[in-house]
Design a protein around this nucleic acid. Structure first.
Lengths: 136, 136
DNA sequence: ATATATGCAAAGACTTTGCTATCGA
DNA sequence: TCGATAGCAAAGTCTTTGCATATAT
């Protein structure tokens, strides 16, 4: 079985434990919840190490971050129905008109079980025209 | 034309200006960007007031918050393709199986927007089974 | 051996809050 | 008028970082 870890820089003790704890969990813990879990097994880990590794491991694709685009809060004066696209390079957010997609969006997707679902948040991710033309 | 403001508690000067600035904008500013804009017209506004009002006005439906569920970062040990449901009462997050939706959504919208769209973030919002049974 | 990662603690970024004066309806 | 809000500044919460030491390969 492929663990994904073989391509990872160094499999240190904290990293191994973080990964194990996260994989054993069906909840979706915050950094400090992970810290508490790890601390039971490695009483001297530091919160900083947990933060650093959660970040590094997300980028390596070993774990997933919810939500990837998380940063500062943003506001929109337009309360009409529409969606947003976020540029992964510069963080810019643009509007996406709802169109036919909007109304059908919900029926496109699998329904969560057990919940009273009142809405869906949808955000497209990509590279904006300006950033696309920038040489790396 | 309906402004939506008529149902709002008090239309104070800061609130009026925040709303005007936000409506005039096609970008999606952060709280402190709004603060800067408002400050040009009301040099004495405080950042706290801007924060408070952005919050109150979002809840009143006068403006929109991107993103509603924003809070602490969460992590997931499962990197397989799937979505999440978030309980708006307790903050709990559960898994939703993927389905073909994601890819369809991308190919559907990628073109019109001008972006190179590489992904979509989808999150359902609702009330979880546990919270549904709690009397208010 | 040695570059990478850790622990610790201090600093940062963003947001919230307590309090008194002020303002809108 | 008078309760809802503003301004101010201090406090909070979550996250990042600098640095000397320890560690995985």
């Amino acid at each position: 079985m492929k663990t994904g870890v073989e391509n990872f820089p160094r499999l240190t003790k904290p990293r191994r434990v973080i990964l194990e704890e996260l994989r054993a969990l069906k909840t979706h813990p915050t950094a400090d919840q992970v810290y508490e879990l790890v601390r039971r097994r490695l009483p001297n880990v530091s919160l900083g190490t947990v933060y650093r590794n959660l970040e590094v491991m997300s980028e390596a694709g070993l774990i997933r971050r919810i939500w990837p685009g998380a940063e500062q809060r943003r506001y929109d004066g337009d309360v009409q129905d529409h969606y947003h696209v976020r540029c992964l390079k510069c963080g810019r957010i643009d509007d996406v008109p709802p169109g036919a997609a909007g109304t059908r969006l919900i029926s496109f997707l699998a329904k969560p079980v057990g919940y009273d679902v009142t809405g869906v948040y949808v955000e497209y991710l990509g590279v904006c025209p300006a950033c696309r033309n920038v040489k790396p």
